[in-house]
Amino acid sequence: MPVTAVTTDPEALTMTLEAEFSAPVERLWSVFTDPEQLGRFWGPPGWPSTFTAFDFAVGAHANYFMTSPQGEKSGGRWEFIEIDAPRSFAVLDSFADETGAPIEGMPSMRMVLSFESTATGSKLVSTSHFTSAEALEQVVAMGAVEGSTMAMNQLDRVLEGLRAYAQGKGTRTEILDDQHVRITRLIEGPRDIVWRAHTEPELLRQWLLGPDGWRMTVCDFTPEEGTSYRYAWEPDDPARGEPFGFDGENLVVVPGRRLTNTERMTGTDYPATLNDLSLEEEDGVTLVTTLIEYPDAETRDMVLATGMTDGMEASYARLERVLIAA
């Protein structure tokens, strides 16, 4: 993982994050000064950022909001106070309301981002300076250490580019913690087709089948927030297993980019999961990322033990073969 240390100093009133990357410092600088790239990692998994403004000049501002899988929004505002390209820049970092204005009563801090060349690539040092010990304690209590660590540990794939990060590696499952698993798969095709394949029932029926020998018998899905959905499958040969299905509710729909929903196995008492699907396109390929939130580690391990990753790989390979190549 890129992050090597996160420390807080109550006497100096600072929180400092250090991370190292194999990319050159110019490349590291570029992702922090391009809002499209910055939004892909500025926020922990499940809380991606959308920058609504980004004027990279001293005295100017950047505004963004992060959206949770349930649709909750948390806003931020930067005022650029120093820029020394490509070595460092500093901002006054504030919590912001829906209009982009700083929230009264919430702490603001001076954040300095420094970029250094190393023998193997580059190093990032991010230091936030607080006005009081209470402000530092408040931000730490809100999960700033854990959130910033998880956010910066997503940066590698942005620096590498999607092809270098995922091409030829199939469906990959990463256990992030007791409750969260991240699954990624690179699809050889544009994002608009991949989005349609995930949201149009006539296309879903062609590829979302898991291993060969199964057919989709129910595909009731509308890509709109607040709608319910239901999928069901059965084997061609009853000896292969029992019919089953899933149902849930769509919580967040950002056409072409993000779909989050709840999921539970139909007709069972198994606990529901929260699935957060996002699509990123680069150079004609699309990275499909699904962040799954389980109620606990036991449920997580039980689901992974079913061979879920292999079933998803069979489906994604079929998606490329049936839809992308058509």
Rank of each mutant, 00 (worst) to 15 (best):
E200Y: 10
E202Q: 15
L203H: 13
R205Q: 13
R205E: 12
Q206M: 15
W207G: 01
L209E: 07
L209Q: 08
L209I: 06
L209Y: 10
L209S: 07
G210W: 03
G210A: 12
P211M: 07
P211R: 03
P211Y: 11
D212F: 12
D212H: 11
D212E: 14
W214C: 01
W214E: 01
R215S: 15
M216H: 02
V218S: 05
C219Y: 00
C219T: 12
D220S: 09
D220H: 03
F221E: 02
F221I: 05
P223R: 02
P223Q: 07
P223F: 05
E224G: 04
E225L: 09
E225D: 08
E225F: 08
T227F: 01
S228C: 06
S228D: 12
Y229V: 02
Y229Q: 05
R230T: 12
R230Q: 14
Y231T: 09
A232D: 06
W233T: 01
E234W: 03
D237F: 07
D237K: 09
P238V: 09
P238A: 08
P238M: 11
R240G: 06
R240Q: 15
E242L: 13
E242G: 04
P243H: 11
P243W: 10
F244L: 09
F244A: 04
F244K: 04
G245K: 04
G245D: 06
F246D: 08
F246Y: 13
F246S: 09
F246R: 01
D247R: 14
G248C: 04
G248M: 04
G248P: 00
